[in-house]
């Protein structure tokens, strides 16, 4: 006889974010799972935004787990973001990592009490702030064309490779490929440096992201309705100056900075 897997029960708490004090209004949005609701659990002067969920769905290795189903996870991620974004719009909000599930209400209360000081400190660090994602976009062909138009040495090499006899031409093409690679990297590094200088004048806190080393950043700033437009203007200026485009996303709740601030609070 096959073992019977018990049906999932809503025995755990999914936690979206931690808010200060009474927590304010609970966002009116669909919870991470259909049929459950978003509520708040107040403990130690903090309010956790939560939904009841079956623990097994998030548990890797459980027969009913859907943690390895990209479609389901994408839907959950969208719901998580929707709720955190609404909470962050309403006031200070510390987003928890996507997929944070506490074993029970009692265990969440223990955690909130135990970590209350660090949580308050982290909340303070990201309160009423927003973040943006920014990265340099490189289209290698367009970049090469831009460099040839602006770097006389590279243009000379292109011309030499084009007019050289086959043997020499082959060697020159290899030299040109290496020169292009070096020039692209140097050009991106200079563009990134100038971009950082421009962003510094906007009073933004900047952290480098690991996605594309050296060329992707998260920016943290006060809530400012005009900031996105100003970042676009920075993007236009960078493009005029370097031929490189910027990809800007946001404003977001302070996701990346929350993790950094939490780590700092833990290290202190």
């Amino acid at each position: 006889m096959n073992a019977i897997t018990p049906p999932p029960s809503t025995d755990a708490l999914y936690v979206y974010a931690v808010l200060p004090g009474g927590g304010g209004a609970v966002p009116e949005a669909a919870a991470i799972l259909a049929g459950s609701q978003v509520g708040s659990l107040v403990q130690a002067g903090l309010a956790a935004l939560v939904s009841h969920v079956p623990r097994c769905l998030f548990e890797a290795g459980h027969p009913l787990s859907r943690a390895a189903d990209p479609g389901w996870v994408a839907e959950c991620a969208e719901a998580h973001h929707r709720i955190v974004a609404l909470a962050a719009q309403a006031g200070p909000c510390l987003p928890l990592g996507f997929g944070t599930v506490f074993a029970s209400e009692a265990s969440l209360r223990v955690w909130l009490s135990t970590e209350a000081t660090a949580l308050r400190k982290t909340l303070e660090a990201v309160a009423d702030r927003q973040e943006w994602g920014m990265s340099l976009i490189e289209d290698p062909a367009a970049h090469d064309a831009w460099l040839e138009a602006h770097e006389p040495n590279l243009l000379s090499l292109v011309e030499a490779a084009r007019t050289a006899p086959p043997g020499t031409g082959f060697l020159l093409e290899r030299r040109l490929a290496r020169a292009r690679e070096v020039a692209r990297l140097q050009h991106k590094q200079v563009a990134a440096m100038r971009l950082a200088e421009r962003l510094a004048t906007e009073g933004l806190e900047i952290r480098r992201e690991s996605g594309e080393p050296g060329f992707a950043w998260s920016l943290l700033g006060e809530r400012d309705a005009g900031m996105t437009a100003r970042l676009e203007a920075v993007g236009e200026a960078v493009f005029e100056e370097s031929g490189l485009a910027l990809r800007i996303t946001g404003p977001w709740p302070p996701y990346a900075f929350a993790r950094a601030a939490w780590q700092e609070a833990g290290d202190a």
């Binding site: 998030f58 890797a60 787990s65 389901w72 996507f98 997929g99 506490f102 955690w111």
Partner: peptide
């Protein structure tokens, strides 16, 4: 991103199972 609790799997305080997160699998799915 977001605040991640110790070790992503099971965090205990005084022997109490506080949190169980299938975060590694979720992140891979993301």
């Amino acid at each position: 991103t977001g605040v991640v609790l110790d070790g992503q799997l099971v965090l205990s305080v005084a022997g109490v199972d506080l949190v169980h997160i299938g975060l590694r699998a979720l992140v891979a799915s993301v």
